[in-house]
Write a protein that binds this DNA or RNA. Sequence first.
DNA 1: GAGCACTGC
Length: 651
Amino acid sequence: MPHDPDPPPAKKFKPGSVFFRLEKNKPGMLLPRKGNNNVTTPIDVQRKRLPIYQAKPQLVYQLRQLNNAIVIGETGSGKTTQIPQYLYECGTGRQGIIAITQPRRVAAISLAGRVAEERRTQLGKLVGYTVRFEDVTSSETKLKFMTDGMLLREAIGDPLLLRYTVVVLDEAHERTVHTDVLFGVVKTAQRRRREINKVPLKVIVMSATMDVDLFSEYFNKSPVLYLEGRQHPIQIYYTKQPQPDYLQGALVSVFQIHQEAPPSHDILVFMTGQEEIEALARTCRDIAKHLPDGCGPMVVIPLYASLPPAQQLRVFHPAPKGHRKVILATNIAETSVTISGIKYVIDTGMVKAKRFNPDSGLEVLAVQRVSKAQAWQRAGRAGREDSGFCYPSLCFTKCVGSEHVLFIPEAVRAAVEQLELLGAVEKKEEQVLLTSLGKKMANFPLEPRYAKTILLSPDYSCCEEILSIVSLLSVDSVLYNPPARRDEVHAARRKFTSSEGDHMTLLSIYRAFKKVSGNKEWCRENFVNSRNMSLVKEVQAQLREICLKLNMKLESCGADTGKVRRCLAHGMFINTAELQPDGTYLALDTHQTVAIHPSSVLFQSKPAYVIFNELLHTSRCYMRDLCLVDPDWLLDTASEYFVRKLHLTKS
DNA sequence: GAGCACTGC
């Protein structure tokens, strides 16, 4: 699957168009654009042809002076690859490292590769990258591309970020909890370093959209530098009223365009999920069969993550001559997959996403409105090679204004509460402080409860097993479940199924996998995803390294799997569910009624107490990945908590 | 007897 190494596209801001939002009195400047790029030209010529090159002297002059700057640049302006190099070339920040953060791993890796190529150096020397479970840097590295989560992790150990002289926060419009927290971290580090006379920290925020007032405000009203890129203009057609039925709206738009536009103009429709996409695909194909003369045929292609790769590739094949290609996609087409030739984007304005529900304290998977940044991102998928059109079902103003949400207070409070329960933090005079256990936990690039469970495992002489289980749960599923071969899958899996639950079943599959040394044929016969399984081995090796560094005892409990379950119960006690007289389960922490997910090996049985990995709120609230536990273990390890919870249950 | 948007540490 080709990935888009470029930052997300921005829009061509035409004066007078709906996208134009450059106020006259706003601080900032418009930097010139010029040039054309061609992959066959030498790399330094390519660099000089980038639009940003024309602005280099001004840009360098500004960036050298400023402690904070906001850079707005469109896709193809070259800001992400060039600005770090310009800073390096002019000697800014030579005392330390220039960090460039990205929201996605692939972006960090491919950008580092590109910049290393431009500097004619081997990746990992002057230019490197750091993402989870992969660190391609050395003592020579001065330009470091990394995921924002990775920088955040480093900030735990070094809040002043002293290794760095410049931090470039790229893709700032793609707001996540990570980027939001990073904003606070770099601002504090900058101020603290000034106060104690350390080397100053330069912070550059880069964004593809013009909604940067908040960024500028947050960083002491820092100047905004505008770069022009090569994006083609996109015309936005608003509906007069927001469509109440977004699917109906999308359907009408598809056929309206189909009747009016030349057949070579492809359409991309953004929708929320598999079921919805397949249903609309059927409807479109039906209607297309009964169109009046003069209306050409259409090819409807679904695109979502769980489609097999071969079917995903269909979106790249050109439609037969005279046919219009209509792609119905999830947000996979926003950033992960770039399709050329899209002239029209129809945006339902909706997305399926995890949302924090403050009432239950849980994350719920639900259909919701897209953020403004997301709507812009979607519109930008039209007009990548030529001018394009976008038909949003919702006015942009109706989108969720992500710019107002710097932190989600409830989510932060819930997270702190969890950390408190795990003993990772304690509150002292209104302050939340990391305990020594919390500091140990921070060594692991894992969710806190997994880190805690690993740290507990030597007490149960089962560190090896816990490392295996945590690794298995940290990668994409190692189980391959083709629906068409359900009976075969069931038969093959039966020999590994453990009555103790899903964790133990996964462990026995992993043990069998190691026994045959990862034999591919064995994987195929047993419906095991060999790539993900190999990844489990790598992850486990890295986690083992961290354990050794912490002087932990790496023992195996062999066949005594009760020890493993005790350890899991101790580490994951917050996720306990209790069987009720009516046959349902009650999640003890949140007092929610929950059920065993049908994919669990415990689906047919009704154990009195289980711990679970996650809750999935769909038609019901399901527990996934369960482990059978003994209530006495729970009372032993967190008695105060359980006495309180069980008391609440009974009353 | 159900179903899985996408990232990230």
